[in-house]
C-alpha cells in the first residue's frame, strides 16, 4: 500500500487522511523536511496537498483578500503588495528566496511557530482561517487559531483551505529585527496596520511570546491620541505607544536574544513603525 497520497481534490484528500491516519499533512515542506532531515520526525505516511484546487490562488475582493493555503510567500510578496502591504513586506523576510518559493501561508499558519513572520500580520489584520474536513467547513478567527508554541486548533482530518485577510485603508509597516541582513529568524518583529476608516491602529508582535500577540492597551491608547483627519499624533504619544507595547509583552531569553533586548527592541520597532505610518 502506498504511503504517500497526492490528492488532486479536497475529497481525495479527506479519503487519504482516513486511509493514512498517521500521515503528515504536507504543503510546501519547508518546515516538515527540516525536521525529517534532522531526524526529529519519521513520517509513516504523507498526504501531500499542494495540488488541491481549493487551496490555490487568491481572490481580491473589496474588503478582503482570500488567499489559498497553498499560495507561496513569493506570490504574496510580488502580487499582493498593493492590497496587503504588511503581509507582502513580511513575506519578503521569510527565510530566503528559495524558501519563499516553496513555503506556503497555510503551512506557516499550521506550524504556528512563535517566530513565524506572517503570523503577526494576520493577527493584526484580524484574518480568518478557513478549515475544511469531511464534516464541512468552519472558520476560525486567526486570534483563536494559534493556542501555544506550535499549537493550533486544527483537528485531525482538517485541512486549512483559505486565509481571508481584511483589506484596510491606511499605512502598513512590517519591521523585523535580526542579527543578519537576510535569511534570519526574527529576534522580534512588529506588524502595524492603520485603519483610517475604522480609526484603529493594530499591532501584531512576533517572537516575544509563545504565540503572536497584540497590544490592546497600546492600540486603544494611540487610537485616541491620533488626529485622524491629519493622521498625526504628538511625538510624546508615539513614544508612549512604544512603551505600552513594550509593557504588553513578556519575552524570554534564549540563544537568539535576551529578554531585556527583546523588550527594548520591540519598543523601538513599534515606535518606528508608528512614526513611519503617521504624517
Amino acid at each position: 500500500m502506498s504511503v504517500i497520497a497526492r490528492p488532486s481534490t479536497l475529497q481525495d484528500a479527506f479519503d487519504a487522511l482516513d486511509a493514512l491516519p498517521d500521515a503528515h499533512l504536507l504543503a510546501g515542506g519547508t518546515d516538515f523536511m527540516v525536521e525529517v532531515n534532522f531526524g526529529h520526525r519519521r513520517p509513516p505516511a504523507v498526504v501531500a496537498i499542494r495540488r488541491v484546487p481549493q487551496l490555490q490562488g487568491y481572490e481580491i475582493r473589496a474588503d478582503e483578500v482570500d488567499i489559498g493555503a497553498a499560495v507561496t510567500w513569493t506570490t504574496i510578496e510580488r502580487e499582493l503588495a498593493g492590497e496587503l502591504p504588511a503581509l507582502a513586506a513580511a513575506a519578503r523576510t521569510v527565510g530566503s528566496p528559495q524558501m519563499r518559493n516553496a513555503a506556503t501561508i497555510g503551512g506557516n499558519i499550521a506550524t504556528a511557530s512563535p517566530a513565524g513572520d506572517g503570523l503577526p500580520v494576520l493577527l493584526a489584520a484580524d484574518a480568518t482561517v478557513v478549515l475544511a474536513s469531511r464534516q464541512g467547513e468552519r472558520t476560525v478567527p486567526f486570534a483563536e487559531f494559534v493556542t501555544g508554541v506550535k499549537r493550533t486548533v486544527l483537528r485531525p482530518g482538517e485541512i486549512i483551505t483559505r486565509v481571508r485577510v481584511p483589506r484596510l485603508t491606511g499605512p502598513q509597516e512590517f519591521l523585523k529585527v535580526g542579527t543578519r541582513n537576510a535569511m534570519v529568524i526574527s529576534i522580534c518583529c512588529a506588524a502595524l496596520l492603520v485603519d483610517r476608516v475604522g480609526r484603529t491602529v493594530r499591532i501584531g508582535l512576533g517572537s516575544v511570546a509563545p504565540t503572536p500577540v497584540r497590544a490592546p492597551e497600546a492600540e486603544s491608547y494611540i487610537a485616541a491620541e491620533i488626529d485622524w483627519d491629519a493622521l498625526w499624533a504628538p511625538p510624546e504619544s508615539v513614544a508612549r505607544f512604544g512603551e505600552l507595547v513594550r509593557d504588553a509583552v513578556r519575552p524570554i531569553t534564549d540563544h537568539r536574544g535576551t529578554a531585556a533586548y527583546r523588550s527594548r527592541a520591540v519598543q523601538v520597532i513599534a515606535t518606528r513603525a508608528l512614526e513611519r505610518s503617521l504624517a
Binding site: 525536521e35 531526524g39 520526525r41 511557530s113 517566530a115 513565524g116 529568524i185
Partner: peptide, 13 residues
C-alpha cells in the same frame, strides 16, 4: 522558515 525548536528526536537528545 523552519525553527528547529520543539519536537523530539535524535538531535534533540
Amino acid at each position: 522558515m523552519s525553527d528547529p525548536d520543539g519536537g523530539r528526536g535524535v538531535s534533540d537528545a
